[in-house]
């Protein structure tokens, strides 16, 4: 049985309640029909002919590639050292770390990243990377498949992205001087 409001205020209140109820049921329906897919945020950039990416959460800063002091007698993948927020960081050649031979353009940017062990280092890059997302399920599947530090992940439009796992990359190169992480 529907209760008829007795006063204007009661009528307005009932109307507001009805409106809220309608909105709530609409949202409930949306929730049932569209499940938002979990995504993994990445910083994507070109390396040679291919597209590479780092997990966005590992990225601390993007700096112009300058004020880097070369370190004679260091390993081939070490470009030099630089000062970042009072710390001395190593600038490393990402192409060299990944076993590649170079970039299409001379790198102009340094990406300051967390190596996965709490320490920071800087990696060279052709340009400031583009933030974008990958489906989390695709990343997880690629992680299971991958043996090295680079995971091959396909975007929804079937583009191949090489997602770099920094923790694996640096544990593979630590102490061995190994340059081929893949």
């Amino acid at each position: 049985m529907k209760v008829t409001p007795r006063t204007l205020e009661e009528a307005q209140e009932a109307e507001a309640l009805e409106l809220l109820e309608r909105r709530a049921s609409r949202l409930r329906e949306q929730g049932e029909n569209t499940v938002e897919e979990a995504v993994h945020w990445i910083a994507e950039f070109p390396l040679g002919e291919e597209r590479y990416a780092l997990s966005l959460e590992s990225l601390r800063a993007a700096l112009p590639l300058k004020m880097v002091s070369p370190v004679p007698l260091s390993a081939p993948h070490v470009v030099g050292v630089l000062r970042f927020q009072g710390q001395v960081l190593a600038a490393l050649s990402l192409a060299s770390l990944l076993g590649g031979h170079g970039w299409r353009q001379d790198p102009a940017v340094l990406l300051v990243v967390d190596r996965g062990d709490g320490e920071l280092c800087a990696l060279d890059c052709e340009a400031i990377p583009r933030p974008t997302t990958l489906p989390m399920s695709a990343v997880e599947a690629a992680r299971v498949r991958a043996e090295g530090a680079v995971m091959e992940v396909f975007t929804q439009d079937r583009q191949l992205i090489h997602l770099i796992d920094l923790k694996r990359l640096f544990s593979a190169t630590r102490g061995t001087g190994a340059r081929h992480a893949r």
């Binding site: 004020m67 002091s69 370190v71 004679p72 007698l73 260091s74 390993a75 070490v78 050292v81 630089l82 000062r83 710390q87 001395v88 960081l89 190593a90 490393l92 320490e119 280092c121 630590r174």
Partner: peptide
């Protein structure tokens, strides 16, 4: 020095110069 170059026996550290370079 950071861990990547700490083992290079030639170097014991780095200092900042006036323009911010090491």
């Amino acid at each position: 020095l950071p861990s990547e170059v700490r083992d290079v026996p030639a170097w014991q550290g780095a200092a900042t110069l006036s323009r911010g370079e090491l």
